[in-house]
Amino acid sequence: MPDIELVSEQDLARTYDGGDYDDTWTVVQQYRRVRTFAADNPTAGVATIAAATNTPTGRVDPWVAKDTTPRAVQALYTAHEHDWIGVTYDDITPLNVLVANVYAGGTIPRDKFEPEFTLRADPETASVVAALELAGVGWTETAAGPDTSQTVAPAQDGAVLGRVLAVLGAPVGAKTEIDNLSLPWYLEDAPESVRKRFVDSYLENRALTDPTTDSVQIMEDRPQTYLAELGDLIASVAGEPVTVGDRAVTLSASAARALGYGRDQ
């Protein structure tokens, strides 16, 4: 399978669309042309640079005279530093785990894009914590106490990471409010190892074991179409029966054992 770039500069930049820009990728291209022309022509004025690069003067002035940088461009710098741009199936593991954890026990708030993840496992063994470390952002605890679930978040560059996860298909905002919630698009053509890693991470957060039957359930308040999609994914990875009911996906004992659950594991 040829390497497929799963996160592009264009897609990441366009997560910043809105406000003053109709297409942030166009702004990124303008900024790069402006900075290149200004570097090659250090005595050129704002009007000359604007005309030469076909860029509105109102944008050229802050970029050149005040040395400001659009947020989308700053995000691209950060994403390149972490090797998130151009990531392929071969090196998607930490991002894949983080996307799975957004679905299974996390959220990406619409207002700030900084993901948070609820833990069921100890931080020392939680896959999401290891993934945050592998992604190069580290982690910090955001809540813990007798009446709250323990949650963690990226220690740095969280807003850019959240946008990268969104490009990969992770839901933004409250998942219960997304009528057309669907699994991330990249799983459809992903290698078996990527699909299995996603399922393993999902089950780490959501699996409810039944010691009397050795079956495993995932209880979800999600659209039925999403549950069916999730059930199909798990069944394809396990190679054993998985059933979907009202607000539940149930792994048969054989499916559970295939994925590492059961008394003989």
Rank of each mutant, 00 (worst) to 15 (best):
Leu76Pro: 06
Thr213Cys: 02
Ser127Leu: 09
Glu9Pro: 08
Asp3Tyr: 01
Glu240Lys: 15
Val199Glu: 02
Thr26Ile: 11
Trp139Lys: 11
Arg71Ala: 10
Gly138Leu: 12
Asp11Trp: 00
Val28Phe: 11
Gly45Phe: 03
Ile4Asp: 09
Thr243Ala: 07
Asn180Phe: 05
Leu132Ala: 12
Asp246Cys: 01
Pro70Gln: 14
Leu259Thr: 04
Ile92Met: 08
Thr118Ile: 02
Glu114Asn: 13
Arg257Asp: 09
Thr142Glu: 14
Ala170Val: 05
Ala144Ile: 10
Thr55Cys: 11
Gly19Asn: 14
Thr176Gln: 14
Glu133Trp: 05
Gly145Cys: 13
Arg14Asn: 15
Glu220Ala: 05
Thr151Tyr: 07
Ala47Leu: 07
Arg120Met: 10
Gly173Thr: 07
Val152Thr: 04
Ser236Pro: 03
Leu233Ser: 02
Val128Arg: 11
Val34Leu: 10
Ala75Leu: 06
His82Thr: 09
Val99Asn: 02
Asp157Gly: 09
Asp3Ala: 14
Leu95Gly: 01
Thr107Lys: 10
Ala130Phe: 06
Glu240Ala: 15
Ser127Lys: 05
Gln224Phe: 07
Ser215Arg: 15
Tyr202Arg: 08
Glu116Asp: 03
Ala238Trp: 04
Leu230Ser: 05
Thr57Met: 00
Asp214Pro: 06
Phe113Ala: 13
Glu141Thr: 01
Leu161Tyr: 06
Ala121Lys: 15
Asp157Leu: 09
Leu119Gln: 13
Val27Ile: 15
Asp147Met: 00
Leu251Lys: 11
Gly45Tyr: 12
Thr142Trp: 00
Lys112Trp: 10
Val160Ala: 04
Glu188Val: 15
Ala256Lys: 08
Pro146Phe: 03
Gly173Asn: 06
Leu161Val: 13
Ala207Lys: 02
Asn41Phe: 02
Lys66Thr: 06
Tyr103Pro: 00
Arg263Ala: 09
Thr250Asp: 04
Thr88Pro: 01
Ser127Phe: 00
Ala255His: 03
Pro154Phe: 04
Glu188Asp: 15
Val128Glu: 12
Asn54Ala: 15
Asp189Leu: 11
Pro211Val: 06
Gly58Lys: 12
Gly136Ala: 03
Leu183Met: 04
Ala255Arg: 03
Glu5Arg: 06
Ala135Glu: 05
Thr48His: 00
Glu192Thr: 03
Arg222Leu: 00
Ala121Gly: 03
Ala130Ser: 15
Gly138Gln: 12
Ala235Cys: 09
Val102Cys: 04
Ala72Pro: 01
Gln156Ile: 05
Gly136Pro: 08
Ile85Phe: 02
Leu230Ala: 10
Thr243Leu: 01
Lys112Phe: 03
Ala38Thr: 10
Thr48Arg: 10
Asp61Lys: 15
Gly106Pro: 08
Glu124Lys: 10
Thr53Tyr: 04
Arg247Met: 05
Leu134Asp: 14
Glu9Ala: 11
Gly239Ala: 10
Asp210His: 15
Tyr202Phe: 14
Gln10Ala: 09
Asp147Glu: 08
Asp147Arg: 01
Thr118Lys: 12
Val242Phe: 05
Ala248Trp: 01
Asn54Glu: 14
Val216Ser: 13
Arg33His: 00
Pro211Ala: 10
Val216Glu: 07
Gln156Ser: 15
Trp185Ala: 04
Pro70His: 13
Val87Glu: 06
Ile218Pro: 07
Ala38Glu: 07
Leu233Trp: 03
Ile49His: 00
Glu81Ile: 09
Leu165Gly: 02
Thr36Tyr: 04
